[in-house]
């Protein structure tokens, strides 16, 4: 899950908390009618009794759905970031579309980028159409290296890559992380 997805999830949950809590507080303080009624009225209790045994089964199904949602959230939360593999899309003649995995292409570019001065590790993700891919580069650079030479090498490596593959990168995005010094 991306940071934006987490932020959206908690914004929605916060809105739900404010709406539910605010309404309950307004009822409790007498600003809305129904303050004297119990939290669980006669209606739901009657529904529960009249629906037996199906009401119990409905709760069990709801529990299964909640547990599944929790499992999916847990799996998404524990997924190691940085394993994102990009795919390129090639539109066909008809209505179809061919998706191309990019590991082989990115591995070659990553090897080239690692030859740049001061670059310790490189990771590349390609997305978008085959003819004009978006190129996302993450570099781990030496803590004492300058960036000028690395920049020139990276730009040249991307140009070489584009010429070899026969594409024109639509968008290049480079993020440099300064590595910790080795003990």
């Amino acid at each position: 899950m991306s940071n934006a997805a987490h932020r959206l999830l908690w914004t929605v949950l916060a809105l739900v908390f404010v709406a539910a809590g605010g309404t309950a507080l307004a009822v409790g303080l007498g600003w809305l009618p129904g303050g004297g009624a119990p939290l669980l009225g006669a209606g739901p209790a009657n529904w529960w009794r009249a629906g037996t045994p199906w009401s119990g089964l409905a709760v069990a199904v709801g529990g299964v759905l909640a547990a599944l949602l929790g499992q999916r959230l847990l799996a998404a939360g524990l997924r190691v970031p940085g394993r994102l593999a990009g795919t390129l899309a090639h539109p066909g003649d008809g209505g179809g579309r061919t998706r191309v995995t990019t590991e082989v292409l990115t591995a070659a570019l990553e090897r080239d980028l690692c030859r740049a001065p001061g670059v310790r590790r490189a990771r590349v993700v390609l997305t978008g159409p085959v003819s004009g891919p978006d190129v996302w580069v993450e570099l781990r650079v030496d803590p004492y290296a300058g960036l000028g030479a690395a920049r020139a090498h990276v730009d040249a490596a991307v140009r070489r890559f584009a010429a070899t593959v026969g594409c024109q990168p639509a968008h290049l995005d480079v993020t440099a992380l300064v590595d910790e010094p080795r003990p």
């Binding site: 899950m1 037996t52 119990g56 069990a60 709801g62 529990g63 909640a66 929790g70 939360g77």
Partner: peptide, 24 residues
């Protein structure tokens, strides 16, 4: 989010157990 996921898993399992007991 991880805590929410664990809470959903535990709460869901509890709801399944209680719902099945009530159905029986």
């Amino acid at each position: 989010t991880l805590l929410l996921a664990v809470a959903l898993l535990a709460g869901g399992a509890l709801a399944v157990a209680e719902g099945l007991l009530a159905a029986l």
